[in-house]
Design a protein around this nucleic acid. Structure first.
Lengths: 233, 233
DNA sequence: CAGTGGTCTAGACCACGAT
DNA sequence: TCGTGGTCTAGACCACTGA
């Protein structure tokens, strides 16, 4: 008999992963139940559960009550990354961070923005445009709309000194949101602010956040050419 | 005294999250220990642990032995999304998926590719270029290098029928990798293959995957203008 | 209905790391 | 050193869902 030395759930996770890689357990196959694996590894079922749950969260396994655990047919590896916090992103590259408020006003939001934020068309929101600098050079052009109903204190925010990005993180918690990435051509004001030739390719991140049922802010950040979002799998 | 009804770890997670949102516990603050919370909620410490561990994984809390649990100073929300599996991505939008192999050869990889894959310069790799179609229109131009040492069976792969994307998923498991997103201008062959005007902005995904210490493949996928990668937070 | 994963418990020991 | 989180256990009950 095999009397495995002391095993932690990470060891069990590693062993299961090894069987997946070696294709001993193939995509679509059902693997032994938690109870069976617990017996095999000589540990409590809870320990096996911990390992299998981790693998399921990572996308390697599909688990369902009664149906059992199966090897994910499609190794959909989930990539996760931290939302770039501009100041840290820039300072992390050894550059000095700068911020400049371009404009702050109250205005009727465009239909697209109202739609993204789930608000009635034509509602008046706080509109803030700014630019983030890296070593003094324009790095990101930010166009943000803030819902004053969700964040009443925004009227007192010193957005001329602190970026809305940071002020909101500190004063307006959010429960969820969505984010989108795309590529666009820099034109008009965007090209002007970023100080690039119109027609340059820029990376764009659009994000909307909510606090419960109430939308907090919708922001569009245009990154200077050459920006690259990177992460590990 | 409060005799909370039956509580699950998700309820405890929700309650802690509520305190974070209400700012009863502010960023940087240390929150009660697991034992204290277990007493307060009238449950086992393991249950509190489950809830706090989940919140830590989500980025709300920072936990360290001895130091205790603190509210994350910076709510670095981690965004996670599935790597687009082209066929599913396209079919998911209700379009028909198509694939066309443009070229397949063995060639000396460019220095940049060797670098990304951690191989010696000038090594010979399998080079495959192809295009993925949505309703017959070019959607993604793919330029891929495969390490035959890591995937010897690739010589027998019917890449004229199955995309390297799918063939590799099925036959070459990988342990880890890295992925990068950027915006570029479509020029030359890329613009030609995607059938777009040179100078259009395109979304680019570059990915390298490994199986243990051995690099499996390095791929560069250029998406037709308008592509948008989206996910929830 | 019954099998399988999901969760909880009460207690125990361990490992990291702040002081 | 020693407090705090990390993990394991053995057993129990529950919840979902396939048959």
């Amino acid at each position: 008999m095999n009397a495995p030395a002391r095993q932690g759930w990470t060891d069990i996770r590693a062993e299961v992963l090894r069987r997946l890689h070696s294709r001993a357990w193939k995509p679509g196959d059902a693997i032994p139940t938690e109870a069976e694996l617990a017996t095999e590894f000589g540990c409590a079922r809870a320990t096996v559960n911990r390992a299998l749950r981790a693998l399921a969260e990572e996308g390697w396994l599909d688990r369902r009550r009664k149906a059992g655990t199966r090897v994910a047919v499609r190794p959909v590896r989930k990539a996760s990354f931290s939302i770039p916090v501009l100041r840290e992103d820039i300072e992390g590259r050894g550059q000095s961070y700068g911020y400049s408020l371009l404009r702050r006003e109250t205005a009727r939001a465009p239909g697209a923005v109202c739609g993204r934020m789930g608000l009635a068309r034509g509602v008046r929101l706080i509109h803030v445009t700014s630019v983030h600098l890296a070593d003094g050079a324009p790095q990101v052009f930010e166009d943000r709309w803030i819902n004053p109903v969700a964040v009443p204190e925004v009227s007192k925010a010193p957005l001329d000194r602190v970026s809305a990005n940071e002020w909101l993180l500190e004063h307006a918690p959010y429960t969820h949101g969505d984010i989108g990435f795309s590529a666009e051509l820099a034109v008009g004001k965007t090209a002007e602010v970023l100080n690039v030739t119109p027609g340059a390719a820029v990376f764009v991140i659009e994000r909307t956040t909510w606090n419960g049922e109430r939308s907090v802010t919708a922001v569009r950040q245009v990154f200077a050419p050459g920006y690259r979002l990177h992460t590990v799998l």
